[in-house]
């Protein structure tokens, strides 16, 4: 090989590397998804929280270990997103085979502790599903939890009657029996898709 050819090859090296990198990247993006929801395995930390339950007692993530947990941030005065989501989740759970239903848990985290008393949260979640529990806490604890799951919430200015809107995540974070973050349900997911994913997750060993 002459020096000229060698130097020409060396000059081509970066371009070759560039093409190789693009091809590899395209290959990574072509992965097929078997879940209906968004797979978030490995993207988020495992489930951990210490908040106040509806009887005024402390509730931690360990209390529901061994169950598939669906965590949802909201508030009981919520006009649309929260009732719609809780309704969907409870219907999806009801549609599951009977023996798997007891392995699921809807965890409703109220991010409006000012207005949402434990009693109020209890009557709210009981209305939707018997598999649902409600928790809340001081704003600092809620901020930490929402930051852990890369979400946030904010309060609008109250109107003349003292009512205010709360912006919050519309997604449901799904954790498996061991507390690993597994799926994210977007607000527009159908009941059937949610049910399918929950069954798949519950049937895992």
């Amino acid at each position: 090989m002459t020096t000229q050819t060698l130097s020409r090859l060396l000059r081509m090296l970066p371009v070759t590397a560039m093409i190789a990198a693009t091809t590899m990247l395209a290959g990574c993006l072509g992965d097929e998804e078997s879940w209906r929801g968004k797979d978030i395995s490995g993207l988020m930390p495992e489930l951990a929280f210490e908040l106040t339950g509806t009887s005024g007692d402390t509730v931690t993530a360990d209390d529901t270990n061994g169950e598939i947990r669906m965590v949802f941030f909201g508030f009981t005065s919520c006009p649309d997103v929260c009732p719609a989501t809780l309704q969907k989740l409870s219907r999806a759970v009801k549609d599951m085979p009977d023996e798997l239903q007891d392995d699921t848990r809807i965890v409703f985290v109220s991010v409006d502790p000012q207005r949402d008393t434990p009693e109020r949260i209890r009557s709210y979640v009981d209305f939707f599903s018997e598999r649902a529990i409600g928790v809340t806490g001081e704003e600092k604890a809620l901020r930490e939890l929402s930051k852990r799951y890369r979400t946030t919430f904010g309060y609008d200015d109250p109107d003349a009657e003292g009512n205010y809107n709360v912006s919050h995540s519309g997604a449901v974070y799904v954790f498996d029996r061991n507390g690993n973050a597994r799926l994210l349900f977007r607000p527009d997911m159908s009941v059937e898709d949610i049910r399918t994913d929950l069954v798949t997750l519950a049937e895992e060993s």
Partner: peptide, 12 residues
């Protein structure tokens, strides 16, 4: 980019 929709915005 719906992630901002899904995870909540800093203000409405």
């Amino acid at each position: 980019y719906d992630v901002y929709e899904v995870c909540g915005r800093a203000w409405p």
